[in-house]
Simulated assay, not measured.
Amino acid sequence: MLTESEEKLSFYDEELNEIGVASRSEIHANGLLHKVVHCWIVDESSNEKWIYLQQRSYKKKDFPGLYDISAAGHVDIGEKIENALKREVKEEIGIEINFRNLRFVGSIREKLSLNNFLNNEICEVYLYNVKDPKFNIGSEVEKMVKLSVSEFKKLVLGRYDYIMAFSIDEKLKFNIRAHEFCVHKKEYLKSIIDFIGK
């Protein structure tokens, strides 16, 4: 089994023409443009809308223990976007995607430079609406938490340094501080909030 750094990925030019293949570690060391899928799990079945985040495993090389998108991952060489999305969601949080409940947010460019980590991605972003989701988390995920969309919006808009989250069974209530979230551009997160509001 390949380690994350040995995993091979396609990379692209600015017109999204595939121009080569490199290891995941080379992709991030050199800031090569590549494709990923992002799936935000939401529950819009009640008056209070909920969004679900994963806490990344403490064993992950990148951003261990931080809270992030419900499920996300790289698109394998030659893989269709829908197949990558289905695979990543199943691997990370154990949910079988029903494509009727999936909404395409858009293709969003994220370019971030953090220490020796250069993230240059085309993110194929989706919302997956499911009532009371049942998670079966994989080894890449520490746990799942839920928070109200209104709380998430406070954090995204910079109004609070922390927000309230709940365990999936709602038995635990706790605060997550801003620095405990993976870094994403504010415009990207705002587009998620706006899309949920549609």
Rank of each mutant, 00 (worst) to 15 (best):
K186I: 13
D43Y: 08
H34S: 10
C39R: 00
L53Y: 15
E124Q: 11
E7V: 00
A72R: 00
K80S: 13
H184E: 06
K190D: 10
Y126P: 02
I69R: 01
E26D: 14
V141N: 07
L9T: 03
T3A: 06
N98C: 09
I93T: 12
K80T: 13
K143T: 14
L118N: 15
L16P: 02
E18M: 13
L147P: 02
D68N: 13
V141M: 03
I192P: 14
E4D: 15
K154P: 01
R103Y: 15
M1I: 09
G138E: 12
K80W: 08
L16V: 02
N136T: 15
F104L: 00
C123F: 04
E121V: 14
Y128S: 10
F63I: 03
N83P: 01
G73H: 05
H184Y: 14
G138D: 13
S23C: 04
R24P: 01
L114P: 01
G31H: 07
E187L: 07
A72H: 05
V89S: 08
D62N: 08
E142I: 01
I192A: 02
L172F: 09
I77L: 08
E88Q: 14
V125I: 12
D68V: 09
L157E: 15
F99D: 13
F181C: 06
L189F: 07
G20W: 12
N175Y: 14
P64H: 12
K111E: 15
F135T: 09
E140A: 12
S70L: 06
S113R: 06
Y126V: 05
K59V: 07
D43Q: 06
L127P: 08
K86G: 00
S191W: 00
V130E: 11
V75S: 02
K185Y: 05
I163G: 10
E96C: 02
Y160S: 13
R109C: 01
I122P: 03
A84T: 11
K134E: 15
E88W: 15
N98P: 03
D169T: 07
H74G: 09
L118K: 14
N175S: 10
E4N: 13
V36N: 15
A178G: 03
R24D: 03
E124P: 02
F174V: 04
M144R: 02
L85R: 02
V37H: 04
L157M: 11
N30E: 12
N115R: 00
Y160R: 08
E15W: 01
V36F: 03
L157G: 04
S148V: 01
L157I: 07
L118T: 06
V37P: 01
L2W: 05
C39L: 07
P64M: 07
S46L: 08
F166C: 00
E4V: 07
V125H: 01
K60Y: 02
E18H: 05
K111L: 02
D161I: 03
S167I: 00
F11D: 06
K111A: 00
L114N: 10
E18C: 13
I193S: 01
V37Y: 00
L155M: 15
I108P: 04
S167R: 00
S150D: 14
Y128E: 10
G78Y: 07
S5I: 10
K173Y: 04
K153I: 03
L33F: 14
L9R: 13
M1L: 04
G78H: 05
N119Y: 13
